[in-house]
Design a binder for these strands. Structure first.
Length: 884
RNA sequence: GCCCGGAUGGUGGAAUGGUAGACACGCAGGACUUAAAAUCCUGUGACCAUUGCGGUUGUGCGGGUUCAAGUCCCGCUCCGGGUACCA
């Protein structure tokens, strides 16, 4: 029978929808549950990209397989629909973002349904739905009302916070606010004065201009909501160990959190009654500290700078405000800095060392000031050379090259490896670490600092607090009111959701405020005593909705509580989470942070949200460029003998692999693929392209390969003359059982490409043999089902079965059929395979050696030599070693 | 810059330290066809040899460990992702 995928796919999609085949089981007694989650998409106006179905097909295969294995499966889909594009479209056209968003969601839903993905659509959610973001606001209120107990390493309700008795009134409020996980503070943002809008970092080009208008952006301080994620750094770090995540992603999270142990050291400032505190991971190198550097934004900069240096320092600060952090800390860039005219006292030897201002020191990390040890730090060394600052070597370099050693000792070369301390003692202060190694040195100096009240051991994290507000319209409003007397209050739970007002114009306000400030009616409130207040005009970042959506999927229609406790307990944690590697740090870290807070408050039952994570690779596409690098649209390219030519100019083109983009005209629309080859082929191709986690280029021609396979499989299995009764051919039986085993193992480890190639091998064999039994046909159909569900359902019914095969038990494989009597040993000489010999699998090594040495082919390769060694690895290899 | 990942035929890729190139695309030849498409069959890393057998070489570059390295270790090159307001 012909493989009429159009008809088959329509038929089964309707069947699944009509029968609610993939409705999540209500029964919470089955101990085998599996929560399989995709990173839900931002529904862009461009519609589904072929990158989306990659992850979605992977989770779909896994879900269908788990159902066949008897698991209760939760597999939902929804929309992360707040975001910039809808807002920008609203600014241009006046169309309300909710309309744009609804249209985009409708397109996405239709496209996803056409792929035959087994989502439970009753669980669909949308982050922009007030019924959803009511609970996002509810969580914000929880964050606001939580403080972090350092001793217990746990978030606790503010009602349990011990407040010192002497604090009253605004001091008390200040104290509590300083403990809340959500706080209101000044933060720096990029600001484009000509667009009057806050810019994302990625909108700011390297020359400091705004991508959209080309004008210079500047840094601006705005009052912003921040979340104290830093307090959870240790918990977030420790939690990583328990996760079944790719090691690379775990490393990225660890490095992002950036824990380092060291000390905070106070340096007296000469001539002022002030201390300059630095954080250093190497307090042991204090003797090598020959100058200090503070960030331009450091609060002491103005105080420290002497009058005759004021002008140069002020100019420098101005210049810095135009640079990004990335620019500032770029090691390849020339170091800049200015002297403040002031000196500090090095606590270990009382020497006066100059204090400089330089932008390679950032306020956000450590204390915003460093001690510089140029002899043993590349950055400090470069800076010292440029500004002719002293360089004192304090570690004996372990190098054999005499000249190099001399250069290092004289401070003419930087030594960043370890070495025993030299020049590290002082009679006056009584400290001496000469001859010690690094660990001992750090320990001794730290305890000396602590004893003298000059510093303390300190753990520092790179992780910064999370800037949690945006000056935008299309986001969750904060349930916050700022009152005229300066008080800030949050709305009550029963007043939620706070919805967005309808606006005429979506342009931002004059001073960089969000467009919400234009809506007087919404903005201004009065309490029962006549006190006037103003709502928070910032909105939450897009992360807010995606931080906890996996929890709402469990019970998405519940209007009483955020989710049912019993359901949460049953379904959490997420057993498999698949999405792009671009979310390796931010989304996953923020989400884990919220989860831990919710866990501390007893709202969720697990400590981590995502037990197993997998990152799919990006799908790229071929693009073409001329010799000079200008891009040529794909429809103007002609291929001849593996070379590419411009159809019009005839010039030879280079084939490159690049992200799909409109400008390269290499975007592949999934709709085109499904209409030409069907959804099953699209699914199968995306899985067959290569390993799920690698970046790979789309190739239309590749779809033909899997389409051919599906057609062959379908035609073979659906032709009654190919289906026989009686005993199965042993070769078929062996291949079938190997296919079951391979598919099962490969699905568990998400290596779908090799599972598919094994199914191809089986079908090639079946075609060659021409006949299989009904049982074999049924079994193969079940193995195919998670991958190509429409074709499999149709075959299942053509083979005479009733109902869907979605819940048919996954076939068991029988090892007996896989056993071999003989193994075809490769015989190699000095590691090079020369010939093969088939021997019984259970033959002893001695016997194998005897037979191999007696073989005339061995005699030829030995050439009269006696082997010096013979390696026999059972059922693997024979290697004969000859020494010359 | 920093963190993470990657590099294997013309192409996508396969390979628990044990026969490199499974499977698929493409290409070449053949069958079917008036012809084309579709389908089916055969061949296909490179080089040398060739009637046939065969041989040499080969996994980005340079070293190392091992009986044996695509795989492990050290040092590079190039490409991709992230870099905190794209999500």
């Amino acid at each position: 029978m012909d493989y009429n995928f159009h008809e088959i796919e329509k038929k089964w999609q309707k069947y699944w929808e009509d029968n609610k085949t993939f409705k999540t089981p209500e029964d919470l007694t089955n101990p085998n549950k599996c929560y399989i989650l995709d990173m839900f998409p931002y529904p862009s106006g461009a519609g589904l990209h072929v990158g989306h179905p990659e992850g979605y097909t992977a989770t779909d295969i896994f879900s269908r397989y788990k159902r066949m294995k008897g698991f209760n499966v939760l597999h939902p889909m929804g929309w992360d629909a707040f975001g910039l594009p809808a807002e920008q479209y609203a600014i241009q056209t006046g169309t309300h973002p909710s309309i744009t968003t609804k249209n985009n969601c409708d397109t996405f839903r239709r496209q996803i349904k056409e792929l035959g993905l087994s989502y439970d659509w009753d669980k669909e959610i949308n982050t922009t739905d007030p019924k959803y973001f009511k609970w996002t606001q509810w969580i914000f209120i929880r964050l606001y009302n939580t403080w972090f107990d350092d001793k217990l390493q746990k978030g606790r309700p503010v009602s349990e916070l011990h407040i010192p008795k002497e604090l009253t009134g605004s001091d008390k409020t200040k104290y509590i606010d300083s403990k809340r996980l959500a706080y209101y503070a000044n933060a720096q943002v990029w600001w484009c004065p000509s667009c009057r809008i806050v810019c994302a970092n990625e909108e700011v080009l390297t020359d400091g201009s705004h991508e959209k208008c080309g004008n210079r952006v500047e840094k601006k301080n705005l009052k912003q909501w921040m979340l104290r994620i830093q307090l959870y750094a240790e918990r977030l770090l420790k939690g990583i160990d328990s996760l079944e995540w790719p090691e690379g992603i775990k490393d990225m999270q660890r490095n992002w959190i950036g824990r380092s142990t060291g000390a905070e050291v106070d340096f007296k400032i000469d001539g002022l009654n002030e201390n300059l505190r630095v954080f250093t991971t190497r307090p042991d190198t204090l003797f090598g500290a020959t100058y200090m550097v503070i960030a331009p934004e450091h609060p002491l900069t103005g105080i420290i700078t002497t009058d005759d240096h004021k002008n140069s320092v002020n100019d420098y600060i101005k210049a810095t405000s135009l640079k990004s952090d990335l620019d500032r800390t770029d090691l390849a860039k020339d170091k800049t800095g200015v002297f403040t005219g002031r000196y500090a006292v090095n606590p270990v030897n009382k020497k006066l060392i100059p204090i400089w201002v330089a932008d390679y020191v950032l306020t956000g990390y450590g204390t915003g000031a460093i001690m510089a040890v140029p002899a043993h730090d590349n950055r400090d060394f470069e800076f010292a050379l440029k500004f002719k600052l002293p360089i004192v070597c304090i570690q004996d370099p372990d190098v054999s090259d005499h000249d190099q050693k001399k250069r290092i000792l004289e401070g003419k070369e930087c030594w960043t490896e370890d070495g025993k301390y030299i020049n590290s003692s002082d009679k006056l202060t009584g400290i001496d670490i000469n001859g010690l190694n690094k660990e001992a040195g750090i320990a001794q100096i730290t305890s000396w600092l602590e004893a003298g009240n000059l510093g303390t051991a300190k753990i520092n994290y790179k992780l910064r607090d999370w800037l949690f507000s945006r000056q935008r319209y299309w986001g969750e409003p904060f349930p916050v009111i700022h009152w005229e007397d300066g008080e800030i209050t949050l709305m009550n739970d029963n007043e939620l959701p706070l919805e967005l007002p309808k606006l005429e114009k979506y342009l931002p306000g004059e001073s960089g405020e969000s467009p919400l400030s234009n809506s007087d009616e919404w903005l201004n409130v009065t309490d029962k005593n006549g006190r006037k207040g103003r709502r928070e005009t910032n909105t939450m970042p897009q992360w807010a909705g995606s931080c906890w959506y996996y929890l709402r999927f469990i019970d998405p229609k519940n209007d009483e509580v955020i989710f049912d406790v019993a359901k949460e307990k049953y379904w959490m944690p997420v057993d498999l989470y698949i999405g792009g590697a671009e979310h390796a740090v931010l989304h996953l870290l923020y989400s884990r942070f919220w989860h831990k807070v919710l866990s501390d408050l007893g709202i969720v039952s697990t400590d981590e949200p995502y037990r197993r994570l997998f990152n799919q690779g990006m799908i790229l596409a071929f693009a073409y460029e001329t010799e000079s690098g200008s891009k040529v649209s794909g429809d103007l390219v002609e291929e001849r003998e593996n070379k590419y030519f411009h159809k019009e100019t005839g010039a030879e083109l280079r084939q490159i692999v690049a992200k799909m983009s409109k400008s390269l005209k290499n975007v592949v629309n999934p709709d085109d693929v499904t209409s030409k080859y069907g959804a099953d082929s699209l699914r199968l191709y995306e899985m067959f392209m290569g390993p799920l986690d690698v970046t790979k280029p789309w190739d239309d021609k590749g779809v033909k390969g899997v389409f051919g396979f599906l057609g062959r499989a379908f035609r073979f299995m659906s032709s009654p003359e190919n289906i026989t009764s009686g005993a199965e051919d042993p070769e078929i039986l062996k291949s079938l059982h190997y296919t079951i085993k391979k598919a099962e193992g490969d699905i568990e480890t998400l290596r779908f490409n090799t599972a598919i190639s094994q199914m191809m091998i089986f079908i090639n064999l079946a075609n060659k043999k021409g006949k299989v039994t009904l049982e074999t046909a049924n079994t193969f159909t079940k193995v195919l089902a998670p991958f190509a569900p429409h074709a499999a359902e149709e075959l299942w019914s053509l083979l005479g079965n009733k109902n869907s095969l979605a819940y048919e038990p996954w076939p068991l494989f029988n090892e007996e059929y896989l056993k071999e009597d003989n193994f075809d040993y490769p015989v190699s000489f000095n590691g090079k395979t020369r010939y093969n010999i088939s021997l019984p699998v259970n033959m002893l090594k001695e016997e194998i050696i005897k037979i191999v040495l007696a073989d005339e082919r061995s005699q030829k390769w030995l050439g009269g030599n006696t082997p010096s060694n013979i390696i026999v690895v059972p059922c693997r290899i024979v290697n004969i070693v000859i020494k010359n």
